[in-house]
């Protein structure tokens, strides 16, 4: 059996995102080795408070992603309002204001598809609570390129539509509750030591 070292984590969430993402981040230590990219559907026309909200609950370095920023370990990069968050194969961040996808900018699919391209089997993709089907196509893409895929247990999700939709599009995705997801990420981080 070969173990693929994981290199990065991509998380997508919509309605109910704050609690769900917080529950994961709060369980990861300060020196957690993998970078984490997060797309939460946020309104386009005002600054997002998510950096402060997550930072209050996590020892990781939480920041709103900037264009052409190099990707570092132990950092959480949030997609800014009104921009798509993309990952370049040189392991840099790009932002984009091209058309919304699933009526949303940022869109989870855009992050997942570009991160899958950049990290291949080194990526872990996670779809959490939400009430549309953004993230489904992206999760399938992650799986096709050899990455690990997880959906939040729909019974636990504040809004089960998004994890259900992702599971339908990517049946091989593992279903876990938030505590199990955090535990899984901790283990994946450890294989990297």
């Amino acid at each position: 059996m070969t173990i693929t070292p994981r290199e990065a984590i991509a998380i997508g969430a919509s309605s109910g995102a704050v609690e769900a993402v917080s529950a994961i981040l709060t369980r990861l230590p300060e020196d957690y080795p993998l970078p984490i990219f997060v797309v939460v559907h946020v309104p386009p026309d005002r600054p997002s408070a998510l950096v402060d909200v997550f930072q209050a609950k996590s020892p990781l370095n939480i920041r709103e992603a900037e264009d052409k920023e190099p990707i570092e370990p132990s950092c959480v990069y949030l997609a800014p309002p009104d921009y798509h968050l993309m990952i370049e194969t040189e392991k840099l961040i790009s932002l984009s204001s091209e058309e919304p996808v699933h009526y949303s900018r940022p869109a989870i699919d855009v992050l997942f598809e570009t991160a899958a391209d950049a990290y291949g089997a080194g990526l872990i993709g996670i779809v959490l609570t939400g009430s549309n089907d953004d993230g489904s196509a992206g999760l399938r893409c992650i799986s096709q390129l050899g990455g690990a895929t997880i959906v939040q247990c729909p019974n636990e999700a504040a809004s089960p539509f998004m994890p259900n939709s992702a599971k339908a599009a990517c049946p091989e995705a593992r279903t876990m509750n938030l505590e199990e997801i955090a535990e899984y990420l901790l283990n994946q981080g450890r294989t990297y030591d």
Partner: peptide, 9 residues
């Protein structure tokens, strides 16, 4: 150009 975006489009 940034390849991630060009490739998508």
């Amino acid at each position: 150009y940034s390849m991630a975006s060009i490739k998508r489009r």
